[in-house]
């Protein structure tokens, strides 16, 4: 059952062909790795999928719905959430508020019910707060709920970004180098948690990661990018034995 289907995606930045004939299939609940050297176009894929950039050509279909040209917020509401390579938290807001904003589109009370603080507002704020705290527990961040996001350590900020993205109940979660800046132990722990999230939330995950070993550890399928093109894709065993991949990525 395909949840995301990308065909022939391409974008130019001035003279630079940052992405060319990119394609990707993700099934429901799958965990897929997206790897490639610096500047290969990985983050650009995320920016195209989430409407930050508009593709020059190609097609993105999420759950049988074409999402090219939709705004970022609409795409988020339809079901793609993401984290950012350079952390983009709401730094001056509390950890809890960061997660609540991640849930933004799930609140049902109307604007008027909100400012008049009617029953529905109170009830929903309470339920959502409990939900948010529960999500924060995944990374033991609930104890920091009232802290400013900026006061968290770098690693914890990355984890908070994942929680915020999960809060929108996405069908597809995009993680852009979530382990960047973490030490080896933290990284292994994070990868295990990501695996756990995939299973317990039944969410499909597309994971950008530099470290090939990490990706091989948890992903069933891998897509390799090089100079904006798909070098190889498919089951991980096939990909790591692909001659092109060995030549370009592993440099042998």
């Amino acid at each position: 059952m395909s949840i995301l289907s990308v065909k022939n995606l391409g974008i130019n930045f001035g003279g630079l062909r940052a992405l060319d004939k990119f394609h990707l299939e993700i099934n429901k609940g799958e965990l897929i790795g997206l790897i490639g050297p610096n500047g290969a176009g990985k983050t650009t894929v995320f920016n195209l999928l989430t409407g930050v950039y508009q593709a020059s050509e190609g097609e993105i279909i999420l759950d049988n719905q074409k999402i090219n040209g939709l705004s970022s917020d609409k795409i988020a509401r339809i079901g793609i959430s993401r984290t950012f390579q350079n952390i983009r938290l709401f730094q001056n807001l509390s950890v809890l508020d960061n997660v609540k904003i991640g849930m933004h589109s799930k609140y049902e009370y109307s604007f008027i019910e909100g400012i008049l603080k009617l029953k529905k507002y109170k009830l929903e704020e309470k339920i959502k707060e409990e939900e948010a705290l529960k999500l924060l527990k995944i990374f033991n961040l609930d104890v920091f709920a009232s802290y400013k996001a900026s006061s968290l350590s770098y690693g914890k900020q990355r984890e908070l970004e994942i929680v915020r993205a999960l809060a929108g109940k996405p069908k597809l979660l995009l993680l852009d180098e979530p382990a960047a800046g973490m030490n080896p132990n933290e990284t292994i722990e994070l990868m295990n948690t990501i695996k756990k999230i995939q299973e317990s939330f039944e969410v499909a995950i597309l994971l950008i990661e530099h470290d090939m070993k990490l990706v091989l550890g948890i992903c069933e399928k891998i897509t390799v990018l090089n100079y904006g093109r798909v070098l190889s894709c498919g089951k991980k065993d096939d990909v790591i034995n692909d001659k092109e991949v060995i030549k370009a990525y592993l440099g042998e």
């Binding site: 705004s71 917020d73 988020a76 001056n92 904003i101 915020r164």
Partner: peptide, 13 residues
């Protein structure tokens, strides 16, 4: 705080 992160969270900026 961050317009891009806000819209990625589903906020219609």
């Amino acid at each position: 705080e961050d317009e891009i992160a806000a819209s990625a969270s589903g906020v219609d900026v």
